[in-house]
Simulated assay, not measured.
Amino acid sequence: MANYDLLAKIQGIEILPGSAIYDEIHLLKANNEQLIMKMNGCYYDPKNVRMYMEQITERPIDDSVTVSQPFYTDFGKHIILGKDIFINQNVTFVDLGGITLEDHVLIGPMCRIITVNHLIDPKKRRGLSVAAVKIKENAWLGANVTILPGVTVGKNAIIAADATVTHDVPDNVIVAGSPAKIIKKIS
């Protein structure tokens, strides 16, 4: 199954341990972890980091994209990066549910973008659900921000350092806190 087909197949369903799809996801995850370890194992110049990112995402990465080491992702195949993106060091993408960064996005150090959650039912707790995250054009995530599953961050929005974003963020605002709330509109 192509990874793009996998993303469509898992949206909105419970992914339970022991199922064929659960096993497939964990096999792909193990393969990705090997690439991540190689990429983070020593210093690489930006061109070689992009080369690794192309292998990890199975997509072309524009020359204007900068990904600082170390960078972490559990799945890798469901990341889409636009142009002129800067991702600082120690950033983690839990991308099984899909992460899209549009053009000119800035991601501060130690940010986490999460698209996977465990199930609420205690009998199914080891199961998974996924929801895509989208960071729109020219948004800026400050240091140590957490974006939770299903969130869209609007165009030109700023997420203050240490914020936890649990709901969509409109265009042209600054949000802060945990959970993040609008503190200012950008004119």
Rank of each mutant, 00 (worst) to 15 (best):
residue 2 A to S: 08
residue 2 A to W: 01
residue 6 L to A: 10
residue 7 L to K: 13
residue 13 I to M: 14
residue 14 E to T: 12
residue 17 P to Y: 04
residue 19 S to W: 14
residue 19 S to M: 12
residue 24 E to H: 07
residue 25 I to G: 02
residue 26 H to R: 14
residue 26 H to T: 01
residue 29 K to L: 11
residue 30 A to T: 06
residue 32 N to T: 15
residue 33 E to Q: 12
residue 38 K to I: 11
residue 43 Y to H: 13
residue 46 P to E: 15
residue 47 K to H: 09
residue 49 V to R: 00
residue 52 Y to E: 13
residue 57 T to Y: 07
residue 62 D to R: 08
residue 65 V to T: 05
residue 67 V to A: 04
residue 67 V to H: 00
residue 71 F to M: 09
residue 71 F to T: 02
residue 75 F to M: 02
residue 76 G to E: 04
residue 76 G to N: 05
residue 76 G to V: 00
residue 77 K to Q: 13
residue 77 K to A: 04
residue 80 I to K: 15
residue 84 D to Q: 09
residue 88 N to S: 12
residue 92 T to G: 00
residue 104 H to P: 02
residue 105 V to Q: 00
residue 106 L to G: 10
residue 108 G to D: 00
residue 110 M to N: 07
residue 111 C to G: 03
residue 111 C to T: 07
residue 114 I to M: 10
residue 116 V to C: 10
residue 117 N to M: 05
residue 118 H to S: 12
residue 118 H to G: 04
residue 124 K to C: 03
residue 127 G to L: 00
residue 128 L to Y: 08
residue 128 L to S: 00
residue 128 L to K: 03
residue 129 S to P: 02
residue 130 V to Q: 03
residue 130 V to A: 05
residue 133 V to Q: 08
residue 134 K to L: 15
residue 135 I to P: 00
residue 136 K to A: 08
residue 139 A to V: 09
residue 139 A to W: 08
residue 139 A to T: 03
residue 141 L to R: 01
residue 144 N to M: 14
residue 147 I to Y: 00
residue 157 A to P: 05
residue 166 T to S: 12
residue 169 V to C: 07
residue 171 D to Q: 11
residue 174 I to P: 07
residue 175 V to E: 09
residue 176 A to I: 02
residue 178 S to P: 08
residue 179 P to D: 15
residue 181 K to N: 04
residue 181 K to A: 09
residue 184 K to D: 14
residue 186 I to W: 04
residue 187 S to T: 14
